[in-house]
């Protein structure tokens, strides 16, 4: 597999996405809006006499809120990743692309990179803003800056990328099997479920998401899922079926 080919495909997709407003808006607005909204909730809750947040509660809430960015990874990847194959098919640009001397793996990797890197950049920027705003909002109550810490670094630098990759790959698999963009987006958005379930399990104390070992185990499990999904994407990408059965 030649990475240069994948880079060319990814660069083309970047250029295409830059001109799609829904993609730009979802990437440029949502991660930052979430940071601002959660900060507003913390500040509001902190000022209400009936529900003052104790420092101990804050130290539980802040990592939980940060986990929203992992869930957001699935959501943000969907509009781009679900478009990858089926979008090209709908716009009839897939046949000339498949006629080029590129392998299935090169095409899928290129499309995966294009769907992975912009949401990752947006999520990292959004989560950075979130941590700065949270530190500013909670410094007086906690007496120290809560972020950054090792667990937050683990969540943002490891868990978030593997979760995003899982979502991108699942969306690419879906995209190469469905025949219209909307169906791709609807099915692709289901990737949010396992991540939301993980968050729910944390809230229900079924798993301690503040525990470094647990986080590392989740990262390792998702990394395995990522590898499996890449091979599944290659196995389910059938040029002939895409060209002859899709209308």
């Amino acid at each position: 597999m030649r990475l240069s080919k994948s880079r060319v495909i990814a660069a083309k997709d970047f250029k295409t996405y830059r001109k799609k407003r829904n993609v730009i808006y979802s990437l440029a607005v949502i991660p930052f809006l979430v940071a601002i909204l959660i900060t507003a909730v913390i500040l509001y809750a902190g000022r209400r006499s009936t529900s003052r947040l104790a420092p101990a509660e804050l130290t539980l809430l802040l990592p939980a809120f940060l986990f929203f960015y992992v869930i957001l990874a699935a959501y943000l990847a969907t509009p781009i990743a679900s478009y990858t194959i089926v979008g090209e098919k709908v716009e009839k640009s897939l046949e000339p692309l498949l006629a080029t001397p590129t392998t299935d793996g090169e095409i899928l990797l290129g499309k995966g990179l294009a769907a992975f890197l912009p949401p990752l950049a947006a999520l990292w920027a959004g989560s950075a803003l979130f941590m700065v705003l949270m530190d500013l909002a909670t410094r007086s109550k906690l007496g120290y800056y809560f972020f950054p810490n090792w667990d937050s670094a683990l969540v943002i630098l490891l868990l978030l990328p593997v979760a995003l990759l899982m979502s991108v790959e699942a969306n690419v698999v879906v995209s190469s099997r469905v025949t219209d963009v909307r169906a791709g987006q609807q099915l692709g958005s289901l990737t949010v479920i396992p991540l939301a379930a993980l968050y729910g399990a944390g809230e229900l104390n079924l798993i301690d998401l503040g525990d470094t070992t647990n986080l590392l185990a989740i990262v390792a499990a998702l990394a395995v899922v990522d590898v499996v999904l890449f091979f599944l994407a290659r196995a389910t990408f059938r040029r002939e079926e895409i060209l002859t059965k899709w209308r």
């Binding site: 083309k12 250029k15 009839k92 640009s93 046949e95 000339p96 692309l97 001397p101």
Partner: peptide
């Protein structure tokens, strides 16, 4: 080979030059 399919299948968001440049790169 070069293929002109029955549907042109261009990237509408890209310029004429960018469309050709992309394919030129894929063909090394």
């Amino acid at each position: 080979i070069g293929l002109v399919p029955d549907n042109v299948g261009l990237y509408d968001e890209l310029s004429a030059y960018e469309n050709l440049d992309f394919y030129g790169k894929l063909y090394d």
